[in-house]
């Protein structure tokens, strides 16, 4: 199926409006909305307020204030070790799984703080999906890989249809439709990564976090994933970490540049529309980095 055909299948503006939510009001209403200053608070998918993450006594990132707009692709760039992965993983509480890791501050998801102990991290992760650097399909069939999330979440609809739809959306269906029973590990790297994306959207998250999803792929597969991200952004909020400047420039709407201080703890230097960050950054550090003059 061509990319165009997929685009046509993408939901219309009306149908993709999120259902209204009754949120447990843990957050105080009307908090300052951070640097993006979007017109409508309903357009903010995730908002980070004064977030710091520590591993034991080491503060890996500090004082993060960011908003991620709904149905936009936000790229996170910065030197290695500046805490991009850490920041990303604090959004869906993956850091909880690391002994000794702590997150301070607030991460608001649809206005609700997800960092609280009383919030179910499992539910957070189902609604904020994640794709990893190295494709990590389960050693199960392609079908079962996609069906994994819906199964554990008690999906009772037609699984065959769901699997097919997710594979379609991940632009993988045509390549695998005749071998759904084959192991997910039998696919090529790029296909595996798209399978992981299909698997992620099968739980119908609202936000998809991607941590260097293309760094293990060849240029062709990389372009495929980028194209796919563009299409997915019609429906999902995407945050992507990348070391590839062109990729950030090509595929994202907004770019966040991070770096780390002398104490090795990372912070945000500059946020802005992607073309501005790459053509006329306001900060010297950003300019050095995007023009390749860094380190």
């Amino acid at each position: 199926m061509s990319a165009q055909a997929i685009a046509e299948r993408a939901p219309s503006a009306d149908s993709k409006a999120a259902p209204t939510r009754r949120t447990i009001q843990i957050s105080t209403a009307g908090v300052a909305r951070g640097p993006l200053d979007l017109a409508d608070p309903g357009d903010v998918a995730v908002e980070m307020q004064d977030v710091s993450c520590c591993y034991g006594t080491f503060r890996a990132v500090r004082d993060i204030n960011l908003t991620f707009a709904r149905r936009e692709v936000t790229a996170l760039i910065g030197p290695s070790g500046c805490g991009k992965s850490t920041l990303l993983r604090s959004i869906n509480r993956m850091n909880d799984l690391i002994p000794g890791a702590r997150t301070e501050g607030r991460v608001l998801f649809d206005g609700q703080d997800v960092t609280g102990r009383e919030v179910d991290a499992v539910d957070v992760r189902r609604r904020i999906g994640m794709v990893f650097q190295k494709p990590n399909p389960f050693p199960k069939s392609i079908y079962e890989n996609v069906a994994f999330g819906p199964r554990i979440n008690g999906y009772r609809g037609n699984m065959d249809e769901l699997v097919e739809e997710c594979l379609h959306r991940a632009a993988l269906w045509n390549e695998v439709k005749d071998k759904l029973k084959q192991s997910g590990l039998s696919l090529s790297g790029g296909q595996q990564q798209r399978l992981c994306i299909a698997r992620t959207i099968a739980t119908s998250p609202e936000v998809i976090l991607m941590d260097e999803p293309c760094s293990a792929l060849d240029p062709r597969a990389t372009l495929q994933i980028e194209e796919l991200m563009r299409e997915l952004s019609e429906q999902y909020t995407i945050v992507i970490v990348t070391h590839n400047m062109q990729q950030a420039a090509r595929a994202s709407d907004r770019t966040v540049f991070m770096t780390m201080g002398d104490d090795r703890s990372g912070y945000v230097v500059e946020v802005g529309p992607t073309n501005e960050i790459f053509t006329m950054p306001k900060q010297r550090l950003t300019e050095d980095y995007v023009s390749g003059r860094f380190g």
Binding site: M94, V122, R125, G129, F138, F148, C196, T200, T203
Partner: peptide, 8 residues
């Protein structure tokens, strides 16, 4: 991680 990220 893959399983946890899917809400397991």
């Amino acid at each position: 991680e893959a399983a946890h990220a899917l809400g397991a």
